[in-house]
């Protein structure tokens, strides 16, 4: 279980990084925390010609608040964000979800943006980003563009990132802090979720619900609070729409049944939290 050969480059700036990406295109892989990519290299299921190591880029190692959003740079680890003192106040939903992301040891290296880039349909950070209507900031030699989470994640481990683009940051909106809840069902603590449900109250009238692990990407639903009284029906409908999929640990049917059961619990928790 040893990686194939590859060129390794460690640029000194994001500018250099995007220059390397421009040169190699999809033959390059960006290495940040490496918690997924390195395992794939060891298993020889990934074969990049060049690895672009951005973990040391100071300019991407920041958490800042601007324009009603928390912007997290691409070198920020999951634990850095988890331990950020303002997280609970500004992004309580993300604060609720981060403890479910891998383990202490993997969060020490795994980055927030890396998780978003990896785009596993059951992973927590992309789910929260989608549920909150966040954004992904992409930079290339062609310029910088900002994509809504819903436009960024396209399917199972598939995103809208062009081969020459570097994810430089993710932005999490901070306006919904009143009533949040997050739950997931996983086989073991720290495993990828079989299903995950996130909910937050937008205002007096509406609720946002994010669902991970059931479709090929996070599903987001806006609902009037009034439906929460009958969340069962809503999740029944969602379960049918999203269908679910089979894997070793869960069938599509089990995923739907879990959603039917866990969903209303999460909505109730969010409403209780808001009250």
């Amino acid at each position: 279980m040893k990686p194939r050969r590859f060129d390794y480059v460690r640029p000194d700036s994001a500018e250099e990084a995007v220059a390397v990406l421009a040169e190699y295109g999809d033959a390059a892989s960006v290495l940040a925390g490496g918690q997924s990519l390195m395992a794939m290299l060891n298993l020889r299921v990934a074969e990049p010609a060049v690895l672009v190591d951005i973990a040391r880029l100071k300019e991407l190692d920041y958490i800042r608040v601007a324009n009603g959003k928390v912007e997290v740079g691409a070198a920020v680890t999951q634990n850095q964000l988890k331990d950020w003192p303002e997280l609970g106040g500004r992004l309580p939903l993300l604060a609720a979800a981060l403890p479910f992301v891998g383990h202490f040891q993997t969060r020490n290296r795994g980055t927030v943006c890396g998780s978003i880039a990896h785009a596993d349909p059951s992973s927590e950070i992309p789910l929260v980003l989608a549920a909150l209507g966040g954004e992904v900031v992409l930079r290339s030699q062609r310029g910088t563009r900002v994509l809504a989470a819903a436009d960024f994640q396209r399917g199972v481990m598939t995103t809208a990132r062009a081969p020459d683009e570097l994810i430089v940051a993710a932005r999490f909106p901070t306006q919904w802090t009143r009533g949040v809840a997050f739950r997931e069902v996983a086989r073991r603590h720290g495993d990828f979720a079989i299903i995950a449900v996130a909910a937050c109250v937008e205002d007096r009238n509406t609720l946002r619900i994010g669902i991970g692990g059931v479709a090929d990407r996070p599903a987001v639903q806006h609902a009037p609070i009034s439906v929460a009284a009958d969340a069962k029906d809503m999740f029944e409908k969602l379960a049918q729409e999203l269908e679910g999929y089979d894997d070793l640990h869960a069938s599509a049917r089990l995923r739907r049944d879990l959603l039917r059961r866990v969903g209303p619990v999460v909505v109730e928790e969010a409403l209780r939290c808001a009250a």
Partner: peptide, 26 residues
Amino acid sequence: EHGVCGCCTVLIDGVAARSCLTLAVQ
């Protein structure tokens, strides 16, 4: 060697990390 078991955990600049998911050059 795929980051699950934790046997290889070391500190890098004081922070616990899986050394099997780390290149020597890193």
